[in-house]
Computed example of a mutant assay.
Amino acid sequence: MKSKNLKVILTSRPVGEATSECFSIIEEDLTALSPGEVRIANESLSVDAAIRTMLRGEGFHMQMGIGDTIFAGGVGRIVESTVDGWDVGRAVRGPLGAQSFAALSTEHLELIEESNLPLSVNLGILGGSTGVTAWIGVKKVARPNPGDLFVVSAAAGAVGSIAGQIAQKEGAKVIGIAGGKRKISHLLNDLKFEAAIDYKSEDVRAKLAELAPNGVNGFFDNVGGDILDAVLENLALRSRVTICGAVSQYNDMDHVQGPSSYLKLAERQSAMEGFAYFHYPEFIKPAEEELRQWLHEGSIKLAEEVIDGIEKFPEALAFMFSGGNLGKLLVKVR
């Protein structure tokens, strides 16, 4: 086993975009484990939009201090252990951080059931911030009915693409909003969505009015800003808007652009509700079980975009906010 740990730390708080100048890559010696800890050789790390909100110093999500290792959920294998039952070689999932090795108490970790699937599915389809979020958001918050026109923003991203597929399983007709020809092709040809709108080259308001002349019945929003307003302008009567995220706003949380068309909710007798998956702890296990079943059946899929090297983690975060990734964005450590 290597004796050095390579990790990404926060060196300054971003103003606007989180550029590479806000981070440093440092190497340090591995220290001895404390009782109750295991050491994990990290394999894959999840790059999530919420990480940007953790760099501010204050906010809803946990915050990182200057000099802290950048937070990241991850999967890896135990290479050293002080705990019975947590044997070397076992796969684990947890808040491993943007580093090559993590030393953590087992109370913060989950042992992963071995299968013929790659470990990364535990960050994607089976991950709390991805598949479980989509499952809870669609089935317990949005609750689409068969035949509904159901819109998903950031539909080619990790949460959006799974949310759209789950809405299809509920009998809804899904319209995905994404940016660029590659993503639109993925939504139409791979995920078989009813329709897709390229926000980079099309007028979202006008296209929605064309695709849904009687309005849309549900909206699963991951973007906020202008996209949220465009859908609010096209609501059907008694529709439901579900706020999962607002990636367009995370670079300037002190000046969040609220929906200027919110009065459409009153005009259309509609409702808007936000959520996070951990607000529904009683549904996490059922979500994981059904997602795992669909995964083994092959009835749900999630593309992966993988960037190699822990030193590329800041680059991966910037890539996500440029709208570059298709599906789940991961950093492969080893």
Rank of each mutant, 00 (worst) to 15 (best):
Y277A: 06
L232Y: 12
H279M: 11
P259G: 13
G258F: 08
N222T: 04
M253C: 06
D252T: 09
V241D: 06
Y262L: 13
Q257R: 15
E282M: 07
K285D: 12
E273R: 13
M272Y: 06
Y250N: 09
I284D: 06
H279E: 14
E233F: 06
I284L: 08
L232E: 05
Q269V: 02
A230N: 11
D252K: 11
I243M: 12
Q257V: 05
H279F: 03
R238D: 10
S260T: 14
S239R: 06
H255N: 15
G274F: 06
M272A: 13
L263D: 08
L265R: 11
G258S: 12
S270E: 03
L232V: 02
S239H: 07
S248F: 04
L265D: 08
K264C: 03
R240P: 00
F220I: 03
T242M: 07
L235Y: 07
G274W: 07
A276N: 12
R238T: 03
R268A: 11
H255S: 15
S270V: 02
I243A: 11
A266T: 11
V223R: 10
L237K: 11
R240Y: 04
Q269T: 05
S248G: 04
L235N: 07
E273K: 14
L228D: 06
M272E: 03
G274Y: 08
D254N: 15
V247M: 12
T242C: 15
L232I: 03
A230G: 05
V247S: 15
V247C: 07
R240F: 02
F278I: 04
L263N: 12
Q269C: 09
A230C: 01
